[in-house]
Every structure is written in C-alpha cells, then in structure tokens.
Amino acid sequence: MRKKKNKRVIPGFGISLGVTLTMLGFMVIIPMAALIIYTSKMSFSEFVNVITGKRVLSAFYVSIITAFTASLINAVMGLIIAWVLVRYNFPGKRIMDGMIELPFALPTAVAGMALTYLTTDNGVIGSFFSKFGIHIAYTRIGITVALIFVGIPFVVRSVQPVLEKLDGSYEEAADVLGAKRMTIFFKIIFPELKPALFTGFGLAFGRCLGEYGSVVFIAGNKPYYTEIAPLVIMSRLQEFDYTAATSIALVMLVISFVILFINSMIQARNTRIVTGRQ
C-alpha cells in the first residue's frame, strides 16, 4: 500500500474510486447481479432448454443477422461520411456534421413510428420499393433499416477523430512515389482506420442488438421471421415467464459484455494512435 501511495502524487484516488465503485455498484453491478441470481434459480439444463428453444434461437439469429447487416452498412457509409466530413469542404458541411447525432437525440419510438410510416407499402419510400416486390416495413429489411438509423453515429464518430489526426506524410510520400489513390487508401489509410472502424462497428453492433423502441414499431413481430431477441424477452415477460426472460437477457448481457471488452482493447490501441503515445 505504502509503496503505491508514493507513486500517486495526485490526490483524490480514494474518493474518486470510492464514488465510482459505489455508483457503479448501485447502478450496474447490483442490478446485473439481481439478474444473474434470478437466473441461477433455475437448473442449468432448464437454462439451456430455454435458450436453445427454437423460437429463442431464431430470435437470436434474426437479431444478429439484422444487427450485423445494419452495422456493416453503417461501417461502409460511416467511413464515407467521416471521410467526406474530414477531407472535403462543401456547402452544408456543418449541418451535415451536426446531423450525425440526430439518431441519438431523436427518441427511438418516434423514429420507429416515422420509419414505419415511410416504409409501409403505402408510404413514400415503401410504395416505390413495393413496385419491385420489395417490402420494407414488417420484414427483416424493415428491422435493418431501423437499426441502420440507430447505428449511424457510432461509426462516424469513431472514425472521424482518427481520420483528423492521421499523419499525412506517408500518404504524401506514397503520392510522390506515384501510387494510385486506391492503393494509397487501402494500403496506407485503411490500416490506420481499421481499429477505429472496428470500434465503431462493435458499438453499433452492440447497440443494434439490444434496440427495442424503434424496431417494435417496424418489425411486425412474427415468430421465426421478424421477432428479435429483445422482443422475445418482452413477450416472455408478458407471459409471466420470468425465468425464461431473464435467461435470454443473461445471454444477451454476456454478448454485450464480450463486445465491449474486445472493443475496449481495440480502443486502447486506438487511443495510442490518436494521441501518438506509446
């Protein structure tokens, strides 16, 4: 203890750690423990039984596949948008930059309602696509659309700062040496952006996996087709089946924990790139 104390010149370690841990305890750890304790009331085989139920598995599948697609689209679009925002000047740039956080600020329920309205077969966008036999609302495409909406800010905001701080000298060197733009991008810029891109992707993916408010309006909630995992939890709750709901919740909790942990490892590398510290 003594030795360590000498290293810490800055005061306030005790109090800040104390407050952090207590609040973390009350807000995150105890509630999570409540969930785990509740699940532990059922035997392991019951637990396995619940989470490998056909409907639950397919809900996980739908959740993961739509969240993955949405995050992938967001990764590509987010990269383009971040690139545009950092590298180019054009009228309306500030507005575009300010807009990115809109999905954060706009309540998901409102977003879901508006997106549903737009994408049903009578809606502005939906009627266009339905001519080609593509239905958006009440299908997996609809869920994906809602999830893209929620996930936009994550990738853009992760990539943007890295792109801003990127050292231009390699790029210039490559340019001088006559490398093509495409080559420069993929060989020099992209590797630098990769960690940030992964972080953004991971955050968006994690968020999308758990999204409820906007999806519930647009999904149609058909078992095996458009029923996502949070919806199954909700419907299990409504069926008085607490243990089942908590078991599914526990699995999702573990998934988000893993995503976050991987993310914070990438993030640590990322910070080193941004700050230039080793």
């Binding site: 203890m1 003594r2 104390k5 005790g14 109090i15 750690l17 104390g18 407050v19 841990l21 207590t22 609040m23 009350f26």
Partner: peptide
C-alpha cells in the same frame, strides 16, 4: 490509505442514499 478508502466508501454510500 485503507481507512481513507473506507471513509470514502461511506461518503459514497451516503451520497447514493
């Protein structure tokens, strides 16, 4: 140090309370 941490914990709990 340990005592301080404990004191701080109490403050924290009071705050939560």
């Amino acid at each position: 140090m340990k005592r301080r941490i404990r004191r701080v914990m109490t403050i924290g709990i009071a705050l939560m309370g």
